[in-house]
């Protein structure tokens, strides 16, 4: 499955994977990131039921220092 994560092309080997699995698979703490799929924010409580689809454009965002 070919998708884009944070602007980069990614090929996923898994047949099906939901957003929760995608995030935890990257070693990220779900409470500390936000996700957008095709420019739509997906609330954290829905991650386990939203499955990644071919050509999805996914943004995984977190907090950094700033002024």
């Amino acid at each position: 499955m070919n998708i884009r994560i944070n602007g980069e092309n990614v090929v996923l080997s898994q047949g099906t994977i939901n957003l929760q699995e995608l995030v935890t698979g990257k070693g990220l703490v779900p409470e500390r990131v936000v996700m957008e799929v095709n420019l739509e924010i997906i609330p954290r409580e829905k991650w386990a039921t939203v499955y990644v689809r071919e050509h999805d454009q996914i943004e995984i965002i977190s907090f950094v220092g700033g002024g």
């Binding site: 500390r32 943004e59 977190s62 950094v64």
Partner: peptide, 19 residues
């Protein structure tokens, strides 16, 4: 205080500034 939002850096440590 204030913080910014950026794309997750996969190569960076997982710890969050919020902590």
């Amino acid at each position: 205080t204030t913080v910014a939002l950026r794309r997750v850096d996969s190569s960076a440590p997982v710890e969050s500034i919020l902590d």
